[in-house]
Computed example of a mutant assay.
Amino acid sequence: MKIPTPLLLGPNQPLDRPYRGGAGIARFRGTTQPSPFTPEDFVASTTEVFAGGGVGLTVLPDGRTLRDAVAADPEAFLGAAHVARFGTRTMLLVKLLDTAERLFVHYHPDDAFAASHLGSPLGKTEAWAVIDAEPAAYAALGFQRPVSETEVHAWWDGQDADAMLAAMNRVPLAAGDTLLVPAGLAHAIGPGVTLVELQQPTDLSVLLERRTLSERDALLGLDLGVAIDGLTREVTPEDRIQSLRGGRGTETLFPADADPYFSAERIRVSGTRELEPSFSVLIVLDGTGTLETAKQSISLSRGATVLTAHGDGPLALSGELDLIRCRPPH
């Protein structure tokens, strides 16, 4: 059975994640928060959580996972050029994320580390587009001074999160802000932030701050010495942070450093607009309108998330809309 796309997607929020959040997702979508520990909504996901079990995968109306549907008909979903370059991987994971508490201090491995130590060809560079944020919201990103391996070991042994954060750059966050987070950089998001997250399609996080998690879970089963080999311990200077915060032009959300991993556009429609064919995830930030293809029409409003396939052809938007279009690397 071929899934009719574009497809309006409901929430896909794994239960019992290790930190609290999700109220901001419920407000944005106009839905009910499943539990206090549902801070992530995996949108059009072909990626499961690191523990496996299919958790995180999007299930389609016919009962198949999106991952299986893409594998069965990759050119229809992804286009011939994408398949020639990347195979059947979508090369994209999109999430809605909301924090009711500060996230763990952690980092994501890059492709080389993931291939060498974790059996994955992909690491996890990610980027954020903030939808909503409480006053004084922030992220911590990279180190403001060089950090030795001995110091990281001491942080881990004492689980000294205050010392970790004191060594990091504090980055204010407000609605409309964007930030690219390259693999290797230590980071954390403060409480009261709701955002759209684009990332390479893996669930690989090395937690320097483990709280109630076991050492094995926090370090992805690696020894500490190996686990911190992928951490960028050099200074991340202010000018580098500013470059990671900047988009390009009026619509491209992230700097050129994001291009090998994913792309995103902030699209505002007043009247009509046509978008080129692509596998993509549309997230409607505000307004109302319609998405039309040659075969169907979908009503859009704030909080809607829509999967589009390359085979849908051109996408016609109409109405008064403010949305983000998330796509794989071009």
Rank of each mutant, 00 (worst) to 15 (best):
G184E: 03
G119N: 06
I189D: 00
L317A: 06
S301Y: 08
P39R: 03
L198H: 04
R240K: 15
E151N: 07
G319R: 02
M91W: 05
L165T: 10
R85S: 08
A127Q: 04
S318M: 06
G176F: 12
P277T: 11
E215A: 15
V152I: 14
A218C: 12
V206F: 00
L220T: 11
R27D: 13
R27I: 13
S35F: 10
T308K: 03
D322Q: 12
E101H: 11
L57S: 05
L96D: 00
P237L: 11
G79M: 05
P4E: 14
E320T: 15
E48W: 08
E251W: 11
V130F: 05
A71R: 14
I131A: 03
L8S: 13
R210I: 04
L173H: 09
T288I: 13
P74A: 11
V130T: 01
D322P: 08
Y107N: 01
A100W: 06
S280R: 12
T88G: 01
E151D: 05
R210Q: 10
H153T: 11
P109D: 00
R240P: 00
C326Y: 01
L165V: 13
L323P: 01
V235P: 07
D239V: 15
T31H: 06
V284K: 01
A76T: 15
L103H: 00
V281P: 01
S116Q: 14
A127G: 14
L275Y: 00
T99G: 00
L66D: 02
F37I: 10
A51Q: 13
G225N: 13
D157W: 06
S270N: 15
G184N: 07
D157I: 14
G123F: 08
P36A: 12
R64L: 05
R240Y: 12
D203W: 06
Y107W: 10
G184Q: 08
T288N: 11
A304F: 02
I189W: 04
D98Q: 10
A183F: 08
L173C: 07
R102D: 09
T308N: 01
V152T: 04
V306D: 03
R145Q: 14
L92W: 06
A294C: 04
M164V: 14
G271H: 13
D312R: 07
T65P: 02
V83E: 00
C326Q: 02
K124W: 09
V59P: 04
L275M: 13
